[in-house]
Nucleic acid binder design. Sequence first.
DNA 1: CTACTATGCAACAAATTGTTCTATAGGGGG
DNA 2: CCCCCTATAGAACAATTTGTTGCATAGTAG
Lengths: 193, 193
Amino acid sequence: MKEDPRLIATRQTALDAAQKILMDEGVLHVTHGAVSKATGISRSTLYRHWPDARSLRDAAFRRIATPPNIPPKTDGPLRSDLRWLLGILMGALNDTPWGQIAPQVVAAASTDEEARLVITEFMKDRFASVEAVFAAAVGRGEITADVPVDQLIELAVAAPYFRKLIRHEALDEDWLDQHVDLLCSIAKTNSGQ
Amino acid sequence: MKEDPRLIATRQTALDAAQKILMDEGVLHVTHGAVSKATGISRSTLYRHWPDARSLRDAAFRRIATPPNIPPKTDGPLRSDLRWLLGILMGALNDTPWGQIAPQVVAAASTDEEARLVITEFMKDRFASVEAVFAAAVGRGEITADVPVDQLIELAVAAPYFRKLIRHEALDEDWLDQHVDLLCSIAKTNSGQ
DNA sequence: CTACTATGCAACAAATTGTTCTATAGGGGG
DNA sequence: CCCCCTATAGAACAATTTGTTGCATAGTAG
């Protein structure tokens, strides 16, 4: 038995609007009333779908924070793989809803277990991608196993996030080139000594 | 003509409570009503001091986000100076209100010009401290001027913030030792080539 | 002591939040 | 095509929150 298409349509319309409000005005303004006004969906219907303000906000967060699937590229060389992967990550921060919403998820995570789960899951995926790139480089013999890979992964991801979320500095191609260069030089000079 | 001590007392008591609420329950719960209930100060008095919810929240943010003065230590060696400075930064993240509040300032900054100002000012101070340490190392001839100092500074500060605010991983002495080791090895191997 | 001003308190309007009921319209199964 | 089920819209409603105002009281400065 299939799900009533009206349920699906309502959910989609409502969360689209909630997402937009979340990005434009912040979590404080994501309420049943605001979503109702934005969509024309009646308040009572919204309450039926999300019984309170918190579950509505959670739903909006969760919808945005779903990590895009990143097709792996690990055929080397390291610089090229890293550049490619971090390019996607940077693109996501610059041009997708995730980039706009991330600060608010970060904030929610400090007082809310649910949001913390969302973000740590998300980061685990990111780290796994970078990890795979380094592992492949070790497998090819491009770098040796005694490189401090865990630290490098953390630096690789930390820099763009810090730059975007906390410093509000531009993330552009030039910056990324420099960043990848530095990471590679660390990996190479620490390799096999 | 001195300021009425009643004004000072009210401000202090109210903001103490606002700060506590901000840390424990998040920015959403910092309201005139909540502060009034927590302090016994009447709502009308609070409204007289802070005309709307936003100015109350801003005041609470601003009070916490005031950077502590860090006495500079730049007498070398680089590893020691860096370890000392980042130790203070880490301590602040772990054990002061700033560490608890930072995520919410980050979030506010994404939709609020005022909060963005608070955080960029704050970071400018941090960067200046780290910069001074590297500059001193260059001055002593411990590293050469062609080290990518700006990138190193960013990595130095980004890592602890990312780790604490976004990954919610522990910031401890062992981690910091590794972090500083890596930074120094980058600085040294990139030096004079 | 006097003039000034911050506070507390109560009453109030307005907006928001959440609930419930009914009528209506859409969808799925026979 | 028809009937049953269910989702939605809309309105009415209570409770809470938000912000305002007027007045009495009490603390402060000169």
